[in-house]
Amino acid sequence: MTTVGFLYPGHFAEDDYPRMEILLDSTIRLVVHHTESPDGAYREDALRALGAPGRLAAGIEELQRSGVQSIVWACDGGSFPYGWQGAHDQAAALARAAGVPASSTSIGFAHAVRKLGAARVAVGATYPEDVAERFAAFLGEAGVEVTGTHAAGVADAAEAASWDGDRVLALARAADRPDAEVILLPDTALHTVAHLPALEEALGKPVLTANQVAAREALRLADRPAFAPRLGALFAGREQPPAPVGWGSGRAYAHGKKD
């Protein structure tokens, strides 16, 4: 049994995780612990507060009792505003406290893009424009070229969680660019797992979404390849366990493993 853990703020789209667990191998377990989310606003100060060290540390003990082999901070908005180095410092602190490899959804997006062999992406973000641009800048620090960014201007996580599949598809279409090889939809408050096949069929290219990416990042850290085509192109290839060397300059690193 491979058991991986997630620190997830509040209660928004956490039902994506049991849905993914059903679609993955029966020997994979996804354990979610909810961290405090006193302010679900999509403002940079509120998002940075979600990722404060004390708030994340409070959830580690429960995940340890579940025997997790890796931990992912499943909140892209609570990590990318810290920048590439800051997000890695955040993950390193989690790993030291938990005693297992740790990462975040934001870092996982960079690893997922590389796993697909892509170089150019387009971003469709629920966030206001300034926050969406911070995510694009974060990807740029990781060596990922962002060909375009579309910001929907959603005010908070509760609003994002209310979106249905049609609105998610509209976001992906608005973000798409002819030169983009992959579409990225950040925000773990957005329900996307049930819509992945339809999104990729409609766009004709891979679509990476936050909770899907968080799951793959946790499994990557646990050295557990997973094959689940209904979770999109990211899970459609039969991959081997990650080699003990990085890609490019070696900057894309989550504490405990290299991509």
Rank of each mutant, 00 (worst) to 15 (best):
E62S: 15
E141H: 13
A157Y: 00
F12S: 14
P81G: 08
V4I: 07
V182A: 11
P186Y: 02
G10I: 07
Y127I: 00
H191G: 04
P241S: 10
R19L: 15
P38S: 14
A202R: 00
A41S: 15
S162D: 12
D15Q: 15
P244N: 10
L23P: 00
A112P: 07
V146D: 06
L199A: 00
F135V: 09
E200C: 08
P38F: 13
G86Q: 07
T105K: 07
R238V: 11
A180E: 04
E217R: 07
R220W: 13
A122V: 05
G117S: 03
V144Q: 02
A112K: 08
A41R: 15
L139T: 05
W163Q: 12
R48N: 02
L185Y: 10
A91T: 03
A93C: 01
G256M: 01
D166N: 14
F227A: 00
L184H: 01
K205G: 00
T147I: 08
L24Y: 06
H33I: 00
D166L: 10
G148P: 04
A218S: 06
V245G: 01
A174R: 13
G143K: 11
D164Q: 09
A132T: 07
A180R: 08
D15V: 12
R19Q: 15
C75V: 06
G99Y: 10
T3K: 13
G248V: 08
G124N: 11
P225M: 05
V207E: 11
A180Q: 01
G250Y: 07
R29E: 14
K257S: 14
P186F: 05
L231S: 09
E62G: 12
T209D: 09
L190P: 00
D166V: 06
S162L: 14
S106Q: 06
D156L: 08
V213Q: 04
Y42A: 02
F135R: 06
A125Q: 05
E141K: 05
A236V: 05
A102Y: 02
A152H: 12
V31N: 09
K205L: 06
S26P: 04
V245L: 14
A161K: 07
A87D: 13
L139K: 04
A161M: 11
R134N: 14
G83W: 01
A180C: 10
T105D: 03
A172I: 03
L231G: 12
A160W: 02
F227D: 02
R29K: 14
T149G: 11
A137R: 15
G108Y: 02
Y253M: 14
K115S: 12
E21K: 00
D15L: 14
F6V: 11
T27S: 15
H88F: 05
A125N: 02
M1S: 10
G86S: 10
T3F: 01
P178G: 02
H191I: 09
F80Q: 04
L63C: 03
V146K: 11
R177H: 14
P18T: 01
A243I: 10
D259G: 13
P128W: 03
